[in-house]
Design a protein around this nucleic acid. Structure first.
Lengths: 335, 335
DNA sequence: CTGAAAGCGCTAACAG
DNA sequence: CTGTTAGCGCTTTCAG
């Protein structure tokens, strides 16, 4: 049984209202009384019951963060950014994993709602639950997934631009047949990346071959399998844009086994710039994203929304950045 | 304003007590009434207020998980294990990062306590807050850190054994001067690993040189710096046991720059077997840990403790496993 | 089987 | 400046 404000009120012979006031830093308590109360609370190791507090104040100082997979190196960084911003603002973080599963995502949302989080940052695993999310009637910021330009706040990166940069770079390096290997086509960012790839190809007046676009899932093995499929085909590509670095690493694994000369005969660009991509042994050319900043920005937008309920929704799009490493030739080599 | 049991009671013309009973699946409601209530709740999209529920029932079905750094690839895996087990048991997870900082760890603990989590799984970043944790008077399972054999539950891996395996393997490969580069010496597991290293050396009748034991922090850069310090010294080691893979990767970075022949002239064993260690480009020999299982096991022990308050504390120690890859010579090569 | 009443710990009017 | 009084939404006795 933990101690309550009543306990400390009794000990000091004051009303528990005064204790409440002192503890929440409100005026209406004599400085002397306040000091005694604070001292006693400290001494007893009192911790306010957030449940009771939230019940009456209708605010929990807690926000939810719902991501697809904490095991994917991209997300811990984002989560870290959110968490740091949270803490600075005095908020708690309720983290959930949807594991790319709509039912689980739904269950997470329900749990978050039951616990009355004040706001939500979500990287949806699909569009399946957006309806439910809107019915929750709490401030929401979508991460990496734009749902509807008008009604929802969104923070993400310019995926299409990033994919375009990848294609441009590959072309500048002299690669001719560029393929795209993505993750789930349920994923908004994946779709955007693919669209950026297609757009860039068109912009260069190049044909877009259906057969050069493959989607699987966001893991190394999928990258490996799809690379194999592509590279064993009769007319294989000489470069690949991967939906993310994890996939790219799978591709790289295949090229290595097949002893394909990278970057001489084959070019590869990833996406995200995860830790492993920058290892000296890997040196994957990739599209880098300011992951932590993404998280921080998401929270800061959410905070604003939570502060003033009728904040107009905003879109915040971060520009990605091409990081040239060793899986692409140097552009000067080309032509 | 979200809807309450009163709302649905009024709509149906029953007492809200009945609604409560129906919703919580307790007996005392006619099957017909129950059905109507459940249907109405569903229709209205009712979500019980966990705050109110927790306030009266004194249980939140939420457990806290406090880890040092979600950005370290070891922890997401563990978190995932905990989370999966949690969800299966119908619990929520409140995840916090201490960022290896005792004050922040303390603040997290307080937040957890305020929110009245039913139990706690913690990988302490130091021994600083154990006193506070014990005062929280909730079921706790320590992760990777044994505090006191008698009173606390603990799940972790046999770090000393793992480090010993690393040393044994290195010796079997024919390396002669083995050094140890660790992370924070605040970290229990690091201390254990170091102890295992020392113990194994002694067991082989080898001298333990103070100068061959260096501790920094758990990141790649620290590994790089300490490797440099060691390898630039007059009498450098020809093998290193790293406190974890992240550090090992830093060491590898240095050896690569210095063009040291690995594994011919220099051997390296990491710890944890993170994703990057297994990449074909890296192929780091390491001590593998069943990370997800660790998390699952921790929760299952916590669950038992939460169920029966006087469960005797238990220690659960998992054996690590040597994974031989390409940063060590093959043992047959030796002697 | 059902309803009325009490109270979880706290904040927020309302009086004094 | 202080104390009294209501609830927040829910579970849990206790009557009927």
């Amino acid at each position: 049984m933990s101690i309550t404000i009543v306990d400390i009120a009794q000990k000091l012979g004051v009303s528990y209202t005064s204790v409440s006031r002192a503890l929440t830093g409100k005026k209406g308590v004599g400085p002397e009384t306040r000091k005694r109360i604070l001292a006693e609370a400290e001494k007893l190791g009192y911790q306010p019951n957030a449940l009771a507090r939230g019940l009456v104040s209708k605010s929990t100082s807690t926000v939810g963060l719902l991501i697809p997979d904490i095991t994917n190196p991209f997300f811990p960084e984002v989560a870290r950014g959110v968490e740091e911003a949270c803490r600075q603002a005095g908020y708690n973080l309720f983290l959930c994993n949807s594991n790319w599963d709509r039912d689980q995502e739904r269950r997470c949302l329900e749990a978050l709602q039951k616990n009355r989080v004040d706001g939500l940052i979500i990287n949806p695993s699909s569009a399946a639950n957006v309806g439910f999310i809107e019915k929750m009637r709490i401030p929401v910021v979508f991460l990496n997934t734009k749902i509807d330009d008008r009604k929802t706040s969104y923070v993400g990166i310019d995926n299409a631009l990033g994919a375009g940069m990848a294609v441009d770079h590959l072309l500048a390096c002299g690669y001719k047949r560029i393929a795209f290997i993505g993750g789930t086509d349920q994923s908004y960012s994946n779709v955007q990346r693919q669209a950026g790839y297609v757009g860039a190809l068109r912009l260069h007046g190049l044909a877009v071959e259906e057969g050069l676009i493959l989607n699987g899932s966001f893991d190394t093995d999928s990258g490996y399998q799809l690379a194999r499929r592509l590279l064993e085909s009769p007319n294989p590509p000489d470069a690949i844009v991967a939906g993310n670095d994890i996939i790219a690493l799978g591709v790289l694994q295949y090229t290595q086994e097949k002893r394909l000369a990278v970057p001489q005969d084959f070019g590869l660009v990833g996406f995200d710039d995860i830790y492993a991509a920058g290892l000296p042994q890997v040196q994957l050319t990739t599209i880098a994203l300011p992951k932590r900043q993404l998280g921080r920005q998401a929270f800061s937008m959410l905070l604003e929304k939570m502060g003033t309920p009728d904040t107009p929704s905003a879109q915040y799009v971060i520009q990605p950045q091409l990081v040239v490493r060793n899986t692409t030739r140097t552009p000067s080599t080309a032509s």
